[in-house]
Simulated scan of single mutants.
Amino acid sequence: MTSTASTPALRGIWPAMLTPLRADLSIDHERFAAHARALIGAGCAGVTPFGTTGEGPSFSLDERRQAVDALVAGGVPAAKILVSTSCAALPETLALTRHALAIGAWGCLMMPPFFLKGVSDQGVIDAYRQVIDGAADPRLRILLYHIPQVSGVGLSHEVIATLQRLYPQAIVGIKDSGCDRAHSVALAGAFMPPLGVHVGNEPDLPELARLGSAGAVSGLANFLPRLVDRLVRQPDEAATARDLERVKTLLALLGGYSLTPALKGIMAVQTGDAHWLRVRAPLVALDDARFRSLEREIRAFGIDPRTD
């Protein structure tokens, strides 16, 4: 599980999975595994549970560990799971990272501790070092997760370069969800290869693909896996230009809603299953009027599960 200059950190599409909930707001393991199997069946390289889109920090250590186990028990190969192990408390991040290693997961998506703000680069480096040294496992693969508009703690070039130098086998890539194309391009110029740079903002996927990025962790891939895959694999095809415009249209539509409740609303529309509307506090589920409005817009937009 090492990284080399000829092997990008991530290949293919790894949807940032939405997390289905039961009426008591516990994780619905059966729907979770079924969703992951469907995504892999649609051609996704793997799945990413408990990232930002999956409301990861809203679930406890045990809930996340049990749900990942349920994915494997439900027929999802562990080697096709990129586990988001990000927690505010380092011992919990380490525990989830050890669990990912124990089950044979592909790797871990890890943001810096995100409760305290204004921390120094050295503090961020020390946090990652405590997890990596604590895991003490040569199989460890980490995608560094940069999403400062959510975490309040970014990853500077100095942090990335230092961790890459200290742990050249463990640090295999960067997920840049800052939604700043110039920043993503600068990361690619500085670190790719040997690191992979993978953007979370789908309109930026073709540009990064031209620079050599071969994969993505994408929220829209929950229901547009084939379209997102084309943005990465075929950045200059005429059909991809049309796909890109569709993505921009959809994101503009979603701008009128809270993002994760709206993404779950799209899943409810596509599956006919209202269970998908449930979210954990502090998020607020779409009320009936907002859901009906979203449903009308999504049906007008048109999502074809055979091609999208």
Rank of each mutant, 00 (worst) to 15 (best):
T19M: 03
G118R: 02
A214M: 13
R31I: 04
S258T: 12
I160Q: 08
G215W: 07
F191S: 09
F301S: 06
I298R: 00
A300C: 10
A33Y: 01
G189S: 11
L187T: 08
A100I: 07
T7D: 08
L208A: 10
A79Y: 06
G75Y: 13
A16V: 05
A209F: 13
T97N: 15
A73G: 14
R11A: 12
A221F: 05
R64Q: 15
I132A: 04
G54H: 00
A161D: 10
P203C: 14
E30C: 09
L143E: 03
R31L: 13
I125K: 00
R299F: 10
A16Y: 12
I142F: 00
V172N: 12
T271M: 05
H157W: 06
L18P: 01
G200H: 11
H198K: 07
T307P: 04
D308R: 00
E55L: 15
S60W: 15
L187P: 13
G134Q: 03
Q122H: 04
P112L: 06
P91Q: 01
P206C: 03
S156W: 09
A100R: 03
W106L: 14
P112S: 11
S213C: 09
L253M: 13
C44E: 03
R242I: 11
A289L: 13
K248C: 14
S293E: 15
Q149I: 10
E92P: 12
A300W: 03
V279T: 05
V131A: 02
P8K: 06
L25S: 07
V284E: 09
L231P: 00
G123H: 00
G255P: 05
L143W: 01
A33H: 03
R292N: 12
F301W: 07
D243K: 03
L220P: 06
V76Y: 11
V217G: 08
N222D: 05
D229E: 12
T53W: 10
L144T: 04
P305T: 12
V172P: 03
T4M: 08
H275R: 15
A190E: 10
L259Q: 14
G219T: 03
A38D: 13
M267E: 02
D28S: 04
V150E: 15
E295P: 02
R165E: 12
Y145G: 02
V172W: 06
R306Q: 11
A161T: 04
K248W: 11
W106V: 14
R233V: 15
R37P: 06
M1V: 15
Q66V: 07
A79Q: 14
E55T: 04
P235E: 02
A78P: 06
K248E: 10
L195H: 11
G154H: 08
P305I: 04
D28Q: 07
D133L: 12
E245Y: 14
G56T: 10
A241R: 13
A262Q: 13
L163C: 00
M192G: 08
E237M: 11
P20F: 02
R31F: 01
S6M: 10
L90A: 14
C87F: 08
